[in-house]
Structures are given as C-alpha cells and as structure tokens.
Computed example of a mutant assay.
Amino acid sequence: MKRAFAPLLLSLSVFFSGMAAAQEAELPPLEEATMEEDPIFAAFKAVERYFRETQSLKAGFVQHAPSGEITSGMVYMARPGRIRFDYAGDVPFLVVADGEALNLIDYEVGQVTRWPIDDTPLRLLLGRDVDLARLGAQVQAAPGGDERIVAVHARDENRPELGTITIFFERRAGEPDTLTLKGWLVKDAQAQETYVELVDAILNPELEKKLWTFEDPRGLSKRRRTR
C-alpha cells in the first residue's frame, strides 16, 4: 500500500476532477462584492449562512491522494475544531481533530503526529468564525461556468507553507441560496493536491463525543495496534 497520507495533514476528489482548474483562476476578493444583486455577494452570503447553520456533519468520503491512490470511508465533523476520518478496509490510519489539534494516527508503526488546527487548511472548515472576509477567503459563484457550484478559496498570505484550500458547494435545486457541501481540494506548499469528495452528507446529526478520541498506539504491541 502506498503511504500517501502524510500530505493529508499538511494539505488535506472535489466534486469532480474538472473543477480543479477553477482553483487556478483568480477569484474576486469578497470586498469587491458590495451589492445584493452581485452573484458573488449572493454566493458568499449563502456560504456564510451554510457555516452559520451547520454545527455538525456526517458523510461518506472518497479521497484522492497526490500519488493517485484512492481511499474511502466515513467522515464526521463538529464545529468548531472537530473532525474524524474513518478509513474503510485495512487502511491502518485514523485522522482525528479533537478541538485543539489535528492528529494523524498510524497504527502500523505506532505513531501519532499532531498539528494545531490553525496551522492546517482545514481551519476554514472547522473554525468558529464564519466571517469569510476576515479570513481572507475568496468566492467564485460559478467556477468552470457551472451555475450549480459555488467555490470558496482560502490562502494565508503570511504563511504560504500552509498551502491552500478550495471548498466546493452545490446549490440545492429550486433553492439557489441553500448550499450542500460537496468536497474540497487542498494544495500544499509543494503543489501536491489532495481531493476529498463527500457522499450522502447528513447535516447536524447528533455525534458521540468518543468520535474525537482515539486509542494511542504508542507503546502498544504491533499485535494490538487496531483502530
């Protein structure tokens, strides 16, 4: 099995792979959208509404690593600061953000690697703040000319080593101001891209607190290193 999971924490398929080109386009800054009839202004207000109304999420996911390896599983999210990626099959990894740090748990070698959430691109997804303008995010109302899609792109100009994230939403049919989170594309400082696509997302489910914990594999025998 290719070990393509370390880039996930530094960079963590979008809705469809053709959308990747949209990340390269210059996205108009939020401050330029000042009128309600402006489609970009309407799009970023819809995104802020989504974050404001979404406290938790449960979904299937498909992840495309920079190596081309494809994995899948279940993802759970609770804002602020909590996310869990449970990989299906025999993948010996677990990714858990516990409200303070993002943890990569490698049960094969018995190792835990931690990053502060604010030092990862996922801070846009997991943060308490929904003020996209303050976060320096940019919005595109119809990337690739697809009117169904809204994209949000974020990059910390002062810390380029953190990489970039582009989050993709789909407008709900008949309710253009209501969005569904479809996935995200993350590019790290080495231009390595990781794509995550969400499947059958459920909004605001009740999630057990134990999801944000994990068995620490350090010190366990290899025989006992299971998730």
Rank of each mutant, 00 (worst) to 15 (best):
M1W: 01
R3M: 06
P7I: 04
V14F: 13
F16G: 09
A21E: 14
A21Q: 15
E37P: 00
F41W: 11
A42H: 05
A43D: 12
V47H: 01
E48V: 11
R49K: 15
F51C: 08
L57C: 06
K58P: 05
V62L: 15
A65R: 02
S67C: 07
G68E: 09
E69T: 04
I70N: 04
V75M: 11
D86W: 00
G89M: 08
D90M: 15
V91E: 00
L94Q: 10
I105E: 04
Y107F: 09
E108L: 14
D119C: 00
D119A: 10
R123I: 01
L126W: 02
G127D: 15
R128L: 02
V130E: 11
L132F: 12
L132T: 04
V139L: 09
D146W: 01
R148V: 10
A154M: 11
N158C: 01
T164S: 09
T164Q: 06
T164H: 03
I165E: 01
T166Q: 10
G174K: 01
D177W: 08
G183R: 02
L185I: 02
V186Q: 13
Q190W: 05
Y195S: 15
V196F: 11
A201K: 03
I202E: 15
I202L: 15
E206Q: 11
L207T: 04
F214P: 09
E215D: 12
D216V: 07
P217Q: 00
R218D: 07
L220N: 10
K222C: 01
K222Y: 00
R223F: 07
R227G: 10
